[in-house]
Design a protein around this nucleic acid. Structure first.
Lengths: 181, 181
DNA sequence: TGACACTGAGAACTGACGTTCTCTACCTTA
DNA sequence: TAAGGTAGAGAACGTCAGTTCTCAGTGTCA
């Protein structure tokens, strides 16, 4: 039944709590209570809270990009594939637990004080950019278009989070369609 | 020489420090040291830290929208006026002190725990949306276009903050130009 | 069996920080 | 001048949260 390692349980708790409430609002005690991993073990796995934060961002990055990659791979046409990115965003926005981009949120909260977190955020966004560039290139578009789609995606993520309205995905998709010509 | 009120000085310090380092990273002691307003007076002016945060966001909102409004007002052609929004964003991004959108940052940090701050952020974004709708309508475009420009602007703001590269304003402007046809 | 390493639960430590209190000095006004 | 209100400086308070420590229990291996 419970074959997860203590590390997995700790990261699950970290991801759930940090994303939902923000990093400062969650104490290591909360992580312990939710993960049922003792503080002693937590500090063996992650030497401090900052490392737990970066570890959760790293693991989430793998899942996030994987989910997006899998979704667009189901679409044949290269141009439609680019638009499918915004369909995937929409499925994310309608999640009742959606609270914006974990990396943007962490950047706003810790970017100025934690170089490690700031670096993690840049790494994630760079990965997203690379993904869009690859999709764009495959559809015969240049890097400028990929950059503009990235801006649209980021804008939709932020707008959907603040307004609570998933319609931002639809608007971004429509704008992307116009950019694709 | 120093005709500023204690409230002005407190808000100046709050704006500078909260924006630069984030809210949690700045203590009321720091506000006192920077503003030279005693803690006693600070707490007379703002009953708690949260109210100081919302007050700084409110005052910044007035200045921010005012600066944008003034900038685009200098452009005659209604269509060019919409594009001038992105020129104005660029002048903001090149500021060495640029650290993204204060409201988005505060939303990521406090949105989940402070309803008052979350409301302040929504108010600001709603004001920005209204501004873009008015500009769009004056140029003969509909609300959908305004919404797409809003998404582009938000995306540029976030991307410029994380990458540190003001080029996001240029890309967003180019995309906006294509949307305007 | 017995020494030993490791674990969990939780107490304890430590510093930070939001908030309040104390005390003295100054200004205003009758 | 006297009285009272207000301000400033900073100490003090209480809580919280990151981190470490204690101690008893348990499994492992010679």
């Amino acid at each position: 039944m419970d074959v997860q390692t203590a590390e997995d349980r700790a990261l699950d708790a970290a991801e759930d709590l940090f994303y939902r409430r923000g990093v400062h609002a969650v104490g290591m005690d909360d992580i312990r209570d939710t993960s049922r991993v003792s503080l002693k073990r937590l500090y063996q796995l992650f030497p401090n809270k900052e490392r737990l934060v970066t570890a959760f961002l790293q693991r989430r990055d793998v899942r996030w990009r994987g989910g997006l990659t899998d979704h667009v791979a189901r679409v044949e046409d290269p141009r439609e594939r680019l638009l499918a990115v915004f369909d995937w965003l929409r499925t994310w926005f309608v999640d009742p637990d959606y609270r914006g981009c974990a990396w943007i949120n962490c950047f706003g909260e810790l970017g100025a004080t934690s170089p490690a977190v700031a670096e993690e955020v840049r790494t994630h966004k760079e990965g997203f950019r690379r993904l869009l560039r690859d999709l764009s290139a495959a559809a015969g578009y240049d890097d400028d278009l990929a950059e503009q789609l990235l801006i649209l995606a980021e804008g939709a993520i932020v707008t959907a989070a603040i307004t609570g309205d998933p319609a931002a995905a639809h608007q971004a998709r429509a704008a992307a369609g116009k950019l694709l010509g």
